[in-house]
Structures are given as C-alpha cells and as structure tokens.
Amino acid sequence: MARLVIELTNRCNLRCQHCYDERHAGTGELSLAMIERVLREGHGCGIDHLAFTGGEPTLHRQFATIVRAVCAADYLFSFVSNGATLPQLYPLLREARPHFRGVTFSLDGARAATHDRLRGQGSYRQVMRAASLCIMQDLPFTLNMVLTAHNRDEVTEMVKLAARLGSAGVRFGWLMPTPETAARGLDLSPNERRAAEAVIRRLQSDAPVAVSMAPGYFSASPFFPCAPLARQEYNLDYQGNVTLCCQLSGYAGGTPGTDVVGNLHDLSLAEAVEQFRQRVAMYLADKRGKVSRDEFGALDHFPCWYCVQYLDKVPGLKQFPQHPWAHELAARLEGTIDGHVSADGATAP
C-alpha cells in the first residue's frame, strides 16, 4: 500500500528561520472538494494512509471536517505540527483514534533556547504542552528535528528528551541549503552532515526510543530508495499539484514546476499516479545514465541534494561561492567536476 502526503495549506503560524518555503506566509489551502475526490479515488490507487503537511496543516479552516471524512472513508492518517493547535484539537483526535496513526511534532532543539531561536519565542513550550496532551489522551506522537548549525550538538540530548517525554521516537531531518539558510549561517557542510549521521547511527543501536533519519543522508549507492522513488509515497501540494516529493514542493528559488507531475484539476488521481510512475522511471533512467557516464559526484551521494540539482532548485547558491554545497555546483557549472569531499567539508579539486 502507498501513502499520500497532502500539503493541506501553506498557512503557518510560525516564521521559522530555516523554513525553505517562504510561501508559508500565504493563505492557500487545498479545497475540501479536492480532498473528498482524493478520498473517493485513493483506495483504488493503492493508497491507505494520508499524511498531512503544510504550512501548519491543522490551520486548514476545515481540518476537523477533513479528519472526519478521512475516518469515514476508512483511511489511516497522520500529520506534522508545531503543536500550537493541539489544545484545541485533541478531542477531535481522540474521536478519530482508530484511524489516527500519530502526530509528528517539529522540535528543533532539545533546549528551549535553541528551538525558540529557530522557531520563535514560546514555541518550545507549545510543543511541550502538546506532548502533555498526547500523553494524557493516549495519542501517539513522535518528534522531528531538522539539523542545522544551531542545533547539531543536541542530537544525543534530543534522543534523551524524546524518551523522557514518552515520544514513540525521534527522526532527524536535513536542512536543504537555500540562499536564505546560507545567509543565516544555518547549513551544515557535507562533512558536518556525515558526522551528525554517525552520531545518529550510534544512537540507533541503543536508544530507548526509535531513532531514525529522514531520507537525504549520505548513501553509498547512487540509487537510494526513498519512498517516492520506491513508488510507496506520492505528494499532493495545496494547489492540487502531484509532485515528486514533499521536500521539493515549494522549494524557494530555481526553476518552478520541475517536480510537478500533473494537477488534479486536470487529471484523475489514477492518471496522476500513472504519470508519477512514468516520471520516476525517467528520473531513474537519467540517473543511471549519469552514473554510467561517471558524472555522479561526491555530493550526489546525498540523495535530496542530488534531486534539487537534478530539478534545478538551487541556482541561488551561486551567490555564495564559499558555501560548501555550492562549491561542487559551481565547479560543475564550469565543467570541472571532481568528486571527493575534503576534510573541511568543501569539495576539493
């Protein structure tokens, strides 16, 4: 069975430093009619789980109606949240419990000061309040921490915090460099990323809670099987676009639309899924060609980074020639590809 990630809205109540999608100051949302259509057609496409994202997905003005429709149509569902709306939402989640598989709270610091620096004053306490409600109401939750230069030293502490709070687990995600994150000094270099991965792997073996990494970590194989490429996950944005991946959806800068497979205003869900499969096949063929031509560089082994380049999402980094992720990109544009990551994180010639 497959999962459909649905960006319910690009509305958000926070202005996080590392958010790469500045559309989140917006007010767009997926229509209820479109969601109802997805519910009618989803089972026929092998979809049994809906994962709501945003923006802050719970700010969709008809979130309660959507949750009830999801339950009535017999889908499982989960969502990501910054926790701010949980005090209003938990009775709904209690009602939907048989279909509710959990909420993932974005928590970007084990310490309040770190989290609030990235996400705004008071936002740490909102997550803690939301976790309290989940514990009291027996609602499953996990934590997600996006690693940045500001919080990379808190990985171990975050795992301990997750265990202490009663979280089902903690997942570490990767910040994709953008001109904004570069200007704010948030990005980890490739080697810093790999060092963090090593710490997480060590924790995975003996942590009291499930510890996982979001796709995007270094993969020795060029053919990293993330859920979309394994065709186990589709992504629908708030405008009705079926796209390759929620990470790419709405990425600021670059060529717009390169990740769009089709729009559900024009296609049935079954047609969009078929186009998705064709697009993934093309992607994989392109990658195989690149590997066979020996054009697969060191940074390409970070799968999400490969995708944002493949889909031309990062030209803005050319403004930052010293940026560790821009270095290889600049070299490639000049036709001087090399391929190894040096000790300081830059790509050496």
Binding site: P87, Y90, P91, A112, R125, M128, R129, A131, S132, L133, I135, M136, Q137, L161, R164, L165, G166
Partner: peptide
Amino acid sequence: VDTTLDTGETVLLHLDSKTY
C-alpha cells in the same frame, strides 16, 4: 507547563526533569 483538559484534569510538565 500546565494544561487543563476537557475532563477537568490538569497535566503538569516540568521542563527541567521532563516529568509529567
């Protein structure tokens, strides 16, 4: 951090000890 539920109970979470 204190939160009162619709059941009339209140949950307290101490941010130092992370105890509910």
